[in-house]
């Protein structure tokens, strides 16, 4: 009986830990050498909607879009407040009305990491853990 209670207790404790361990998050990444460590939530939103085009040092932001389904869905849910379809529609409206070109887009997390690692003022998002020293994750405040 005692072991049953302990097992139940373990399961109850382990469940939320497991949930945290597998909780899907998206990371906003920039080149490791960029002198930016954090952004707030609305700043991320504005950058990826093309409304903020420059870093604070006035260098132009090179924004990239990750078309990987998981990364895109997580990014849209956490930062864009749109579905992936609404996000792409937004950008097509910018394009066909003559307001903007489409942002650079890539199919995988690795392609995003490779591009950002090679472009000093770029920014992107990935859903996999960051192991490449060429890029770093930004701290996002509410």
């Amino acid at each position: 009986m005692r072991s049953l209670v302990l097992a139940l207790l373990f399961v109850l404790i382990a469940l939320p830990l497991e949930a945290v361990a597998t909780h899907d998050v998206v990371s906003i990444i920039v080149p490791a050498g960029l002198e930016v460590e954090s952004l707030d939530h609305s700043a991320v939103n504005r950058i990826f909607l093309g409304k903020t085009k420059q870093w604070q040092n006035h260098e132009s932001i090179i924004m990239t879009v990750n078309k990987d389904k998981k990364a895109m869905a997580l990014f849209c849910e956490q930062f864009a407040h749109k579905t992936p379809r609404q996000f792409f529609m937004y950008w097509r409206k910018q394009l066909y009305s003559g307001h903007s070109m489409l942002p650079k887009n890539f199919d995988t997390d690795q392609q995003i990491i490779d591009f950002i690692g090679e472009h000093p003022n770029s920014i992107g998002f990935i859903a996999s853990p960051i192991t490449d020293p060429r890029v770093k994750e930004l701290v996002i405040s509410p």
Binding site: K51, T52, K53, Q54, R92, K93, Y96, S97, G98, H99
Partner: peptide
């Protein structure tokens, strides 16, 4: 040059309501 201001010249879609600029697509 800055997020807050820019200039467009030529033939430009007229801003009218929320959707006039995308009405052709």
């Amino acid at each position: 040059p800055f997020d807050i201001i820019g200039i467009r010249a030529g033939k430009v879609k007229m801003p009218l309501g929320l959707y006039n600029e995308v009405r052709d697509s």
